[in-house]
Amino acid sequence: MINNKEVRLIEIPKIHDRRGNLSVIEGGTIPFVSKRVYYLYDVPSGSTRGGHAHKEQKEFLIALSGSFDVIVKNGDFEEIITLNKPNYGLLIEKEIWRELENFSSGSVCLVLASDEFDETDYIRDYSDFKSLKDR
């Protein structure tokens, strides 16, 4: 089991209204200030995304629409977490391998990242990731 300091679901405050719900991410909702926002959509059936870890960057993933599975690995354990509610997000700390799969039709994955894009922060080979974790 991966411990909740490495990966955890966080409930995003939801304001109920007869006109529709509103969720807000602001100071204190997640444990970092987002420096980059991106989203995945129109992911073809059977495709996977992710397939990497970060040396320093943290990420917060939200299924804004539809659903998908996030496979997270810390080098010792693997866990599959299904995201399917827009008022819950998955916090992934640094040095955690992630893969996204099983995207439903019309799904949208929003990612809030703690840092701007930096290719040197990525670990894109799983054997390199395992070597890092085995130290």
Rank of each mutant, 00 (worst) to 15 (best):
I30T: 07
R124K: 15
E59W: 01
S23G: 00
R124C: 06
K55L: 03
T48M: 13
P44C: 06
E79M: 05
I15E: 10
K130A: 11
D42F: 12
I96A: 00
Y88A: 03
C109L: 13
K133Q: 08
T120M: 05
N102H: 02
N102A: 04
V24R: 04
S67N: 10
S127E: 15
G75S: 03
N21V: 01
L110M: 11
I62K: 00
D76F: 12
G89A: 06
R98P: 04
G28Q: 06
E56S: 12
L83K: 05
S104Q: 10
H16A: 05
F68E: 00
N21S: 13
N4G: 10
R98G: 07
S131Q: 10
Y41D: 12
K55V: 04
T120L: 10
Y126N: 09
P86M: 01
W97R: 04
E79D: 07
L132T: 02
L9C: 06
L22D: 11
A63P: 00
S104Y: 09
K58T: 11
T82L: 14
G51K: 06
R19S: 08
Y126F: 15
E56K: 14
D69T: 08
P44K: 08
L132Q: 01
S23V: 10
R49W: 02
L9K: 11
D76K: 15
Q57E: 13
G20P: 07
D76N: 15
N84F: 13
S23W: 05
E56G: 11
F32T: 02
L61K: 05
S104V: 09
